[in-house]
C-alpha cells in the first residue's frame, strides 16, 4: 500500500443539494494510488451522486474535490482535460448506439487527445483487447450482450489512460450470468494497479478485491474499514442492519 504517496482522489466536506433536498451532507474521502475503494449503502443514500460529483457531472454545492492534487472546482481548471484522468463506467453502459465498439472507444481518442485516425484505432483496439473483446471491434452495441457492452464501456474509459476509474453500479443492469465477465475485467484492472472507486452491491467481489469499504447512508459516511471489518464485524447499528438486509 502506497501510504506515502499523495491520494489520487481527495474529497473534503462535499455537499450536494438538489433544490431543497440535501443528498450529500459533508463527505470526506481519500483514495490512495492503486487502492480499490468500495462504496455500499441503501438507495437514495447519495452513492451515485458522490461518484458523479467526482468528475463534475453533478456540480457540488459545497466542499472540494481534488484529482491528482488539482482542484476540480477551481475556475482555472479545464474540466474537459481533467476528465481524461478520470474514467467513468455507468450502470446503463451508455454506449453510443450509432457507432461500432471500436468507434465508441476511439471517439474520445480522436477528439479529446487529438490522435490521428490510424493511431486512435490502434489504441482503441488495444483497449478492447485488454477487456477481452478484440474480435468484437466492428460490432455495434445492439449486437453485443449486456456484459460485452459494459466491457466495451470500460475499454472506452480505459483508452484515455486515466489515473482513477469510477464505477457506478457497473453490474446492476446485467443478467446474473453476465456479471462474472465484467467483474473479471475489474479484477484484472485492480491487479494491474489501477486506482478504483466502485459503487456496487457485489459483496463477494468486495471481499476479494476491495482494500477499503465505505458505508454511506443519508448523505454521510457512517462507517469505513477493511472488508472483513465491515462485512463480518460492523461497529455501527445502521451498518449491521444494512449488511444483514443485503446478505439475505
Amino acid at each position: 500500500m502506497n501510504d506515502d504517496r499523495p491520494p489520487i482522489l481527495e474529497v473534503r466536506g462535499l455537499r450536494k443539494s438538489f433544490g431543497h433536498l440535501e443528498v450529500l451532507r459533508g463527505i470526506d474521502l481519500a483514495v490512495l494510488p492503486q487502492e480499490l475503494v468500495f462504496i455500499i449503502g441503501p438507495s437514495g443514500s447519495g452513492k451515485s451522486t458522490l461518484l458523479r460529483c467526482c468528475n463534475r457531472l453533478e456540480e457540488p454545492t459545497g466542499g472540494s474535490i481534488r484529482i491528482d492534487g488539482v482542484d476540480l472546482m477551481a475556475r482555472s481548471t479545464d474540466i474537459n482535460a481533467m476528465r481524461r484522468r478520470i474514467g467513468m463506467v455507468f450502470q446503463s453502459f451508455n454506449l453510443y448506439p450509432h457507432m461500432s465498439a471500436l468507434g465508441n472507444v476511439a471517439l474520445a481518442l480522436r477528439k479529446v487527445l487529438g490522435r490521428k485516425h490510424a493511431e486512435a484505432d490502434t489504441l482503441a483496439r488495444a483497449a478492447l483487447a485488454r477487456v477481452g473483446l478484440a474480435e468484437k471491434a466492428n460490432a455495434y452495441p445492439a449486437e453485443l450482450s449486456g456484459g460485452q457492452q459494459q466491457r466495451v464501456a470500460i475499454a472506452r474509459a480505459l483508452a484515455l489512460g486515466p489515473k482513477i476509474m469510477l464505477f457506478d453500479e457497473p453490474t446492476s443492469a446485467l443478467d446474473p450470468e453476465l456479471v462474472g465477465s465484467v467483474l473479471k475485467v475489474m479484477r484484472e484492472l485492480k491487479a494491474g494497479g489501477m486506482t478504483m472507486l466502485v459503487v456496487s452491491h457485489e459483496m463477494r467481489f468486495a471481499r476479494d478485491a476491495a482494500d477499503r469499504v465505505i458505508f454511506i447512508d443519508h448523505g454521510v459516511i457512517v462507517e469505513e474499514g477493511t472488508p472483513e471489518q465491515i462485512f463480518s464485524n460492523p461497529g455501527e447499528a445502521r451498518t449491521k442492519a444494512f449488511i444483514a438486509e443485503i446478505a439475505r
Binding site: L57, N94, Y96, L107, R156
Partner: peptide
Amino acid sequence: VGRGQWDAARSTGLKPHQALIYVVLPQ
C-alpha cells in the same frame, strides 16, 4: 436521446459541442 449519452460523452472529456455533434445529434 437519453441523458446517459451526453453523460458518457462528457465523462470522456469531450467538449459540449463535440458531444453534440458526434454523439447526440446523429441519434
